[in-house]
Simulated scan of single mutants.
Amino acid sequence: MPDVIIPGPAGRIEGKYSPGKGETPPIALILHAHPLGGGHMENVSSLMMYDIFRKRGFATLRFNFRGVGRSEGTYDQGLGELSDAATALDWIQTYNGNAPFSWVAGHSFGAWIGMQLLMRRPEVAGFISVAPPTNMYDFTFLAPCPASGLIVHGSDDRIVPADDMERVMSKVRAQKGIDIRRQIEPGAGHMFTNHMEQLEKRIETYLDERLPIVFRERATD
């Protein structure tokens, strides 16, 4: 897991990168929770999702948004952070130019950024969104959503109630053949404290089912 410094739009971006396996590994980009709420690339959820994709042979990158850790700049209400994510994806693609597809995975604020990114980047073939902050940010940009993915939310989330996530995400339109799967983890809060193993299992189970389909689809493109 080499440390990397990526030239970003607000200065350097601090990251951790794991090269993929084989000659043409897919790419995974991991996005952490809110920078002003203690989010950083070493959060337990970020580490867990990073390891999931790394162990599956993905070229995997997690990084700190601007103003976090050794990343330069200051918090920018999501606009700059989206630019950071796009820059990080560009960076990992320079080292994996033959990647068949990319995935984004994010927690809370990172989920919001990741879902915006997939709307702008057709190479993103799937997403994992943990506790998307549907009561804090506008998600109407998903019109229609171009990639299938998994949303996992805690039933006891007091920051973003599960009912609010269901209300917003149930109305999201998707392109033909796209499936946005929503799952509720009983007893889990916004940060999934004491429920990280259950969250990991849900993500692993979903990827076991979904990735073979994505590989087949991209092989025939």
Results as ranks from 00 to 15, higher is better:
residue 155 S to E: 15
residue 30 I to F: 02
residue 109 F to S: 01
residue 196 M to T: 15
residue 13 I to G: 00
residue 46 S to M: 13
residue 74 T to F: 15
residue 181 R to C: 14
residue 72 E to D: 12
residue 143 A to E: 09
residue 201 K to S: 14
residue 138 D to K: 07
residue 23 E to R: 12
residue 46 S to F: 07
residue 49 M to G: 05
residue 80 G to L: 06
residue 125 A to T: 13
residue 35 P to G: 05
residue 34 H to E: 04
residue 138 D to C: 12
residue 32 H to P: 05
residue 131 A to D: 08
residue 117 L to P: 03
residue 48 M to F: 11
residue 102 S to E: 03
residue 213 I to S: 11
residue 160 V to H: 00
residue 128 I to Q: 00
residue 192 F to Q: 02
residue 193 T to K: 08
residue 218 R to C: 10
residue 2 P to Q: 14
residue 11 G to F: 04
residue 90 D to G: 09
residue 179 D to Y: 09
residue 59 A to I: 13
residue 50 Y to R: 02
residue 78 G to P: 07
residue 198 Q to N: 13
residue 151 I to G: 02
residue 138 D to W: 13
residue 71 S to T: 14
residue 68 V to S: 07
residue 61 L to W: 01
residue 135 N to G: 14
residue 100 P to N: 11
residue 161 P to H: 07
residue 201 K to L: 08
residue 204 E to I: 12
residue 202 R to N: 07
residue 43 N to T: 15
residue 162 A to I: 07
residue 181 R to K: 07
residue 134 T to V: 12
residue 123 E to I: 11
residue 174 A to T: 14
residue 162 A to K: 07
residue 138 D to I: 10
residue 146 P to R: 05
residue 8 G to L: 02
residue 202 R to K: 14
residue 52 I to D: 02
residue 90 D to F: 13
residue 132 P to L: 02
residue 65 F to V: 08
residue 18 S to L: 12
residue 33 A to T: 06
residue 92 I to Q: 01
residue 126 G to R: 00
residue 83 S to A: 10
residue 198 Q to K: 15
residue 213 I to H: 10
residue 28 A to W: 00
residue 147 A to E: 04
residue 83 S to V: 13
residue 210 R to K: 15
residue 40 H to D: 14
residue 44 V to Q: 06
residue 69 G to E: 04
